[in-house]
Design a binder for these strands. Structure first.
Lengths: 138, 138
DNA sequence: TTTACAAATCGAAATGATTACGATAGAATA
DNA sequence: TATTCTATCGTAATCATTTCGATTTGTAAA
């Protein structure tokens, strides 16, 4: 995902370019994992003194709606990361220290074909949490 | 899980019996799946007019701490269900129609030993959603 | 049964994350 | 540049949850 692509998707959907939006995208593209609204705010304040909370949260919602960002919840707050462009179904390992997300190649669903033969499976949620090699060796 | 067992665990840990606590346990034992603090409050208010939010949230926290309840987050709120008494680690299939939860025998973790050889896995979340045989055939 | 005291509850205020709003600034288009 | 929405600002409101001083209650010992 490039900033340009994100901006293009914004415009296709009738939204305007702003430097703040480009910077928000840049922030999440460079962050390899989940980040909070608070963390984004801290980052944005370095470039835009007095930026409004409205701007932070409104754009986070917009980007998630446009599927430029994905989110999950933890300890009562929402965490965001750049969306995975690969259209194929996959799961993630999430580093609890730095937030890095590693896409996993396998899906555990086949494990249960036998056990749930009589059941109709619609969806599933699967995430692994721990420490990435970098954080583990520190 | 019986109400008596829950009360016993409360006492073993130096907490007192109250009718409200017994009723909270009853509520979650009879509930088929996850319930919100708000839903519990609505239920409790039918028996205890003017019950304090403090009582609701304090006991939810206590019960989760004592592992009588388990929780997950959705749409900015915490949802609770009665904990599974079997001490062994397992996952669930959850029927989206009737709320039935079927404990699963297998855990998908071994699938990833190779892929995450350099990673330190602490925890994982895995749930399957769909229709149980009864609901599917209706 | 009564007493004593820590724990539980109440009523209400505080907190933290998020959302909403009226006024102003700014991007896009002709 | 003039026009027209959209975006942002500054601040207030909202929602779930936590906290707190005062009061009540469970429970164990007298």
């Amino acid at each position: 995902m490039q900033v340009d692509e994100g901006i293009a998707i914004l415009k296709e959907n009738g939204h305007k370019y702003t430097d703040k939006r480009a910077d928000i995208l840049t922030y999440f593209i460079h962050a390899k994992g989940y980040r909070s609204a608070k963390a984004l705010l801290a980052y944005m304040e370095t470039s835009y003194t007095g930026i409004s909370l409205d701007t932070i949260y409104r754009n986070l919602r917009l980007f998630e709606q446009l599927e430029l960002l994905e989110s999950r919840e933890k300890n009562g707050e929402k965490l965001f990361k750049i969306a995975c462009k690969s259209g194929t179904h996959h799961h993630h390992f999430i580093c609890e220290s730095c937030g890095l997300t590693k896409p996993l190649q396998k899906c555990p669903l086949p494990v249960y074909t036998e056990e749930l033969a009589d059941y109709h499976v619609n969806t599933h949620a699967f995430e692994l949490y721990g420490l990435c090699p970098t954080c583990h060796n520190r």
